[in-house]
Design a binder for these strands. Structure first.
Lengths: 239, 239
DNA sequence: CAGAACAAGATTGTTAACAAGATTGTCAAC
DNA sequence: GTTGACAATCTTGTTAACAATCTTGTTCTG
């Protein structure tokens, strides 16, 4: 009776049926930790028993995720984790280059000491995960640092937009990233925080711009990566 | 038999049942033209017969609109056109100040002559609507100019984000705007285009930043405007 | 044996009915 | 006459069944 089918159909009494917003959160987290690679099929029935909710909730959650570019949703063909192309990857990082310099400037001008301390603790967690070789947490925390910056501005609009961009960046890095461990980042996050502590908005802006460009430079957006013709190129090359 | 109730329940055979994306577009347009004022109740049954679709489509469309801050969606209480508060208004314009300077800089660097001509034609349409005292078109076109700029970058991510921000700005202007006709804008749009034609990115950036701040300066975000306690303040004042 | 037609299974899209909750109008009691 | 409770109506939230579409496996034919 115990089989692979009932991995998580029933949950403890404490967890009530999650709302669509909570379903979205959990898929967001899974994508940011690169546990859900691009092109992963997300069938409704599978999600229903995973979360213990009805089909309606799942469909609404998928619609929200699709509206933010996290999943692709084709008519009559179901949902799958999005697989951004090169053009889309460039667009996402261009948008980040537009938003994040403004964000760190605001933080430099308006952050309270407690906010900066929280950012320092976050960087410490990043370092701990990296030392512990906990790749999953390290990846998630590295992206979440940028979210924390956005949240520190107190601007909910900016925070929501950046959250979408950072999550899509995780997909992009999983698809096009070349170096497995971007340990350059940790050092750069610390440098940004130092500039923020000195209230040096110009410096913080320069640093985060360089930081984003470093992340993008680690990608291979040149030619024949995995994009649309996944199986064709693989089979053609293997033959 | 002809009554106010059947304003658009049946449509010509050419128009098939619109998809949820089309429903979203039409509500977007209505909000941008300030035909749907904030706090307007949007009951599902009303939308169903307005668009001639089932309840499912309407609910999905409302969910999408809610995820972008265009409508408020409270549990068991239905949907209503969003009524941004002062904080939200400031956040939206702060986000625009972050995005649009980058957008015009990109346009200055990369736009083709045909793109710039299209922008010129758009400004001409704005002027025509204004001369014709067509307030509805004038308002919509004025906002759409910023969307055209974003689309000219070719960056779909930026374009989608700005679309949300511009639409929410329409709501904000309707709520907090003081001068009825912002005819200053037309002149400013033309100035931005001129800078773009000269490929002067710095100048274009400066102009659009000033332009956005002018729009925001026309708002009254000080104290007791219409926000949350709409009826209470009205009744209290009328007494 | 290859290839196409066909059929079975599965998945998504849609509709309808039902249940739960909120608002409004009414009525009785003080 | 006013206030409170109650009931009717309307609106939303949920579930279940049904229809349409796609995928996959089989079989028949050349």
């Amino acid at each position: 009776m115990v089989n692979s089918a009932d991995r998580a159909p029933e949950r403890t009494a404490a967890e009530t049926a999650p709302s669509e917003q909570q379903i979205v959160e959990r898929i967001y987290a899974a994508v940011m930790e690169q546990r859900l690679p691009p092109r992963t099929r997300l069938t409704e029935s599978m999600l229903c028993e995973s979360f213990g909710v009805g089909r309606m909730r799942v469909r609404r959650a998928l619609l929200l995720l699709a509206s933010q570019g996290i999943v692709d949703l084709h008519s009559n063909k179901g949902a799958a984790v999005a697989s951004p192309g090169r053009k889309e990857a460039r667009d996402v990082f261009e948008a980040r280059l537009a938003l994040e310099p403004s964000i760190v400037r605001q933080v430099a001008n308006r952050a309270r000491p407690a906010d900066l301390d929280a950012l320092a603790r976050h960087i410490a967690m990043e370092a701990a995960s990296r030392n512990r070789r906990n790749r999953r947490d390290a990846i998630r925390l590295s992206g979440e640092f940028h979210l924390r910056l956005a949240e520190t501005t107190g601007n909910a609009v900016l925070a929501r937009m950046l959250r979408e961009l950072v999550t899509r960046s995780s997909l992009i890095i999983g698809l096009f990233g070349t170096s497995g461990s971007p340990h350059c980042e940790e050092h750069e996050h610390a440098g940004i925080l130092e500039a923020l502590r000195r209230r040096d908005g110009d410096r913080a802006e320069t640093l985060i711009r360089a930081h984003i460009m470093h992340i993008e430079a680690d990608l291979d957006l040149s030619a024949a990566s995995r994009a649309e013709p996944d199986l064709l190129s693989i089979l053609g090359a293997a033959k």
